[in-house]
């Protein structure tokens, strides 16, 4: 009885000690950093995503006097790195009609980009930059079907060409349909995170730092944010992007290579066999 009691008290003391220790650590942390759990999640998510969101500057040609094309600095937009090799997804309306496209990575690396493929119906474009020996950081894709109204989302982009900017809000509604200039954009995410011109093509992420949407449109009587922004869900990108990145599906490419190889081999061996027969 005495032995059991002493073991029990030791357990109790141990438990108390650990609890006190944990409480101390927790207290010292909150008092030192003084951040709420939501702030910590927001900061971490931004740090994770920031290198994967790029600023896009497009230069358009304008007909000047005598109809010679005069280059003029036009639009600013954002883009999201999909693959480390330099594949970037953005909005079609960001790069539409651009003479040349300049991509700014991590606030200092300037790279020239070219359009790989566009899908005006979904307002999506895939552009490619030459990364050389320094690959880019690709974003992690989330699941936009799992989004819930009221869930916190963050928008990372380049509003008004000011430079990389984080804005925060919640999912206001999902499954919105927008009609714009004869185009119909379906199943959009609506958010109250401040989205402004220049945020187009930028990332809408959740607090775990995964991409859930691509900022596409705003509803506004003024042309700037009134906290009604729309994002194309990432699941649409998942469905469309493989085709955009590679117009030939992988299996078709593989089959072609196998077929060619078989043809070449057959022609080689066939000729040899014929030679033997003649001999």
């Amino acid at each position: 009885m005495l032995g059991r009691l002493s073991i029990f008290t030791i357990y109790c003391y141990c438990g108390l000690f650990v609890a006190t220790l944990l409480a101390c650590i927790g207290f010292s942390r909150t008092s030192a950093l003084a951040f709420t759990s939501e702030e910590i999640a927001t900061m971490k998510a931004y740090e994770r995503v920031a290198p994967s969101v790029v600023n896009i500057t497009t230069h358009q040609c304008e007909p000047g006097y005598f109809l010679c094309a005069v280059p003029s600095i036009e639009g600013a937009g954002s883009g999201i790195v999909l693959r480390p090799n330099g594949l970037i997804i953005t909005n079609y309306h960001v790069v539409y009609g651009a003479r040349d496209i300049e991509v700014m990575v991590a606030g200092k690396r300037r790279l020239k980009a070219r359009i790989i493929a566009s899908d005006p119906d979904y307002d999506l474009s895939v552009i490619k930059v030459n990364v050389g020996k320094r690959p880019l950081r690709a974003i992690k894709l989330g699941d936009s079907d799992a989004l819930r109204i009221g869930q916190r989302v963050l928008a990372v982009g380049n509003p008004f060409g000011l430079g990389e900017t984080l804005t925060a809000g919640v999912v206001s509604m999902t499954g919105r349909t927008l009609k714009d200039k004869g185009k119909v954009l379906k199943n959009l995410i609506q958010t109250d995170a401040a989205i402004n011109p220049g945020n187009s093509g930028g990332a809408l992420i959740d607090l775990s730092g995964r991409l859930v949407g691509i900022c596409t449109a705003i509803l506004s009587p003024t042309g700037a944010s009134v906290r009604i922004g729309f994002a194309t869900p990432v699941n649409r990108i998942k469905a469309v992007a493989p085709g955009l990145m590679n117009p030939w599906p992988k299996t078709v490419g593989l089959l072609t290579i196998v077929l060619l190889a078989v043809l070449v081999l057959r022609s080689l061996f066939g000729r040899r066999r014929r030679a033997v027969e003649v001999g």
Partner: peptide, 23 residues
């Protein structure tokens, strides 16, 4: 900030409308 200390003096906004657009 969340600990209740001043980190800045709100001074300017960027806005084409004259009111807040979140910048």
């Amino acid at each position: 900030d969340s600990s209740g200390k001043i980190i800045g003096i709100t001074t300017a906004i960027f806005s084409p409308t004259g009111a807040s657009v979140g910048i």
